[in-house]
């Protein structure tokens, strides 16, 4: 039965902050979380996204050095989720604060985490940066679509085999596939060689392995939030220090 601002003031006072300091900090947080307009409204009239932001703001009142968030975006619509991510990122930087968050959204862990641990059945199975985790897979997939497969197919395969940065993955007639430790570096080399050999290219793509691939590799299971009880991804978006679990 309290308004947004009253919730923040109460939290600050309970954390031992002085009255004046509390109202300054509350105004600052309301502003930062774009809740200033709704500050005087009862929280029960807030949308899910607003209530969640207020939740986080309450936790930030007393300037903690470490903020623990347990699935902060569960149940939010995509817009509110993107909003929350942006707030968390800027907050972690501005407050030089370590955030330890658990999430079932691999996309969220990928975006927010400076360091990421995959927990499977209560055990940390792997812990690195999201980039390192993805690099540890067999590499990026490089795919080139041939404009004239019938004419260029054989020559194209010979060129692919000659590029040291790429491991040939075979063709299916129209597509030339390879794996590279760094797809973006390998692609220009491949295209230049194909051009020199007179092979006509229709399109080219590089895809990074996703965290879903990483998850699959380390738990031996495909990720589905509904079935993966006991599995969670925790990441730390760190302004200063990092959290090691």
């Amino acid at each position: 039965m309290d308004t947004g601002r009253e919730n923040l003031l109460l939290a600050g006072r309970l954390q031992g902050m002085a009255s004046h300091e509390t109202s300054v900090r509350a105004a600052e947080l309301l502003d930062r979380f774009s809740l200033a307009d709704a500050a005087g409204r009862l929280v029960k009239t807030y949308s899910g996204g607003m209530a969640r932001k207020l939740d986080v703001a309450i936790g930030l009142m007393h300037r903690p050095q470490v903020l623990f968030l347990d699935e902060p975006t569960t149940g939010l619509d995509p817009e509110a989720r993107a909003d929350m991510w942006a707030e968390l990122e800027s907050m972690a930087r501005a407050e030089a604060m370590t955030v330890l968050l658990t999430t079932h959204y691999l996309e969220e862990a990928d975006r927010l985490a400076a360091r990421l641990a995959i927990v499977d059945r209560g055990r940390i199975v792997v812990e690195r940066t999201p980039g390192e985790l993805k690099d540890s897979l067999h590499g990026d997939a490089v795919t080139v679509e041939l404009a004239q497969p019938a004419r260029d197919g054989t020559r194209a395969r010979e060129v692919l085999a000659g590029v040291e940065l790429l491991r040939g993955d075979g063709t299916d007639g129209r597509h030339l596939r390879g794996r590279a430790d760094s797809g973006p570096a390998a692609l220009p080399v491949l295209l230049a060689r194909l051009d020199a050999a007179g092979v006509a290219v229709a399109s080219a793509t590089v895809s990074r392995p996703s965290l879903d691939d990483v998850y699959l590799r380390h738990t031996g299971r495909s990720y589905s939030p509904g079935s993966a009880a006991g599995a969670a991804v925790s990441g730390a978006a760190a302004g200063g220090a990092e959290v090691s679990a």
Partner: peptide, 22 residues
């Protein structure tokens, strides 16, 4: 002192709720 402050702010919170339920 903290306990007294806590008692004050928590009592005020309850009275606010009471006032908001006509």
């Amino acid at each position: 002192l903290a306990a007294v402050t806590h008692t004050g702010v928590l009592t005020a919170r309850q009275l606010r709720a009471f006032r908001r339920m006509p």
